[in-house]
Design a protein around this nucleic acid. Structure first.
Length: 319
DNA sequence: CGGATTTGACCCGCGC
DNA sequence: GCGCGGGTCAAATCCG
């Protein structure tokens, strides 16, 4: 929808990726250099602790700044959202005509986001910063968390296999009315213990984009990281969760990625607190994004921005 | 031979 | 009640 994309774009451009790029890398490098390469010898412990304190202060200040930015963004978003609601109230027919054809479950889960474009993430968690949670009764969304993820694939790819780290068993395929490309239905291989299902279909607008719709949450960890890279079956598609670098398309959010990140978080927490490694930096970005996943529209904007910036910075896309 | 995939049949909700 | 369309089932087939 236009309003959402408006929100997304504005947030996206003015938000933190730029700042992260500007602020994060530069100062710590200095610190690290002074700590390690130039480190000499006088008082390494004091020097290191001083640098850490300095780093902590810097990060705190940055955190504060980001929080303020987030507040401003929330306000802007809420204002825009209110305008959108007003608009939708004035023009209810268009939205109704779109949503009326949806089946009960889908329309209820997308509750409010009645656009049939594959541009929303129907994350059902309530937001801590947004008024959405109190405005919209979302009890029905507790049942099945629906997440929509975009994957860019090779143009020549014809399979509907998405490498997301989990193992899936295909149980059906259908050609739907609104999209000439077939839709594939997958169940998690851990079913029935794991109730997660996924639908994969090529985007109408861009055939090289796979839209995966996840229903439910895995009640087990990712089988292995190997699966995410080598593929559990004949995987062909690239797991690049970044569309932001290419087109007007709004969203991409890789749920499994955030989960694996959280594993990294545990590992990092258990080991040394390396403040300024690229991994940690990226993790901070990811964590910011994941914290915003509570709001589907912010998630949409920020995930695209983060992914876009990160992939620009790291063209190989290797982590 | 066993597991994964394919694909037509079937089920079910919704609109008319 | 009927037709349509999306989702699921399950027998057949494929493949390592």
């Amino acid at each position: 929808m236009d309003s959402f994309s408006l929100v997304d774009t504005s947030l996206d451009l003015n938000c933190k990726p730029l700042r992260l790029k500007d602020e994060l890398p530069a100062p710590p490098k200095k610190d690290l250099q002074s700590n390690f390469s130039g480190s000499g010898n006088k008082n390494p412990v004091n020097q290191e602790s001083g640098a850490l304190v300095e780093e902590l202060n810097r990060v705190s200040a940055e955190n504060k700044k980001l929080t303020e930015m987030l507040t401003v963004m929330c306000e802007n978003y809420n204002a825009l959202r209110n305008q959108l609601i007003d608009y939708m109230n004035k023009n209810p027919e268009k939205e109704l005509s779109n949503s009326s054809k949806k089946r009960k479950s889908e329309s209820s889960n997308n509750n409010g986001n009645t656009n049939n474009m594959a541009t929303t993430i129907g994350n059902s968690e309530s937001s801590s910063t947004d008024e959405e949670s109190c405005k919209k009764p979302r009890e029905e969304t507790i049942k099945a968390k629906i997440t929509r993820v975009h994957y860019r694939t090779e143009a020549s790819d014809t399979s509907l296999v998405v490498k997301d780290g989990y193992q899936w068993r295909k149980y059906g395929q259908k050609v739907t009315r609104d999209n000439p490309s077939p839709r594939a239905y997958f169940k998690c291989s851990f079913a029935p213990s794991c109730p997660v299902k996924k639908k994969v279909q090529r985007s109408v607008e861009d055939q090289s984009v796979l839209v995966a719709t996840y229903e439910g949450e895995h009640n087990h960890p990712v089988p292995s990281q190997m699966d995410a890279t080598s593929g559990s079956s004949r995987c062909v598609s690239l797991p690049s969760a970044a569309l932001g670098s290419t087109g007007p398309r709004i969203t991409t959010l890789d749920v499994t990625k955030s989960k694996s990140i959280s594993n990294e978080e545990k590992a990092a927490a258990g080991s040394k607190p390396r403040i300024d490694t690229p991994e940690v930096r990226q993790f901070l970005v990811e964590q910011m994004a994941s914290s915003l996943t509570k709001d589907p529209n912010f998630t949409t904007a920020l995930a695209a921005a983060i992914s876009g910036k990160i992939f620009q910075h790291n063209p190989n896309g290797k982590w």
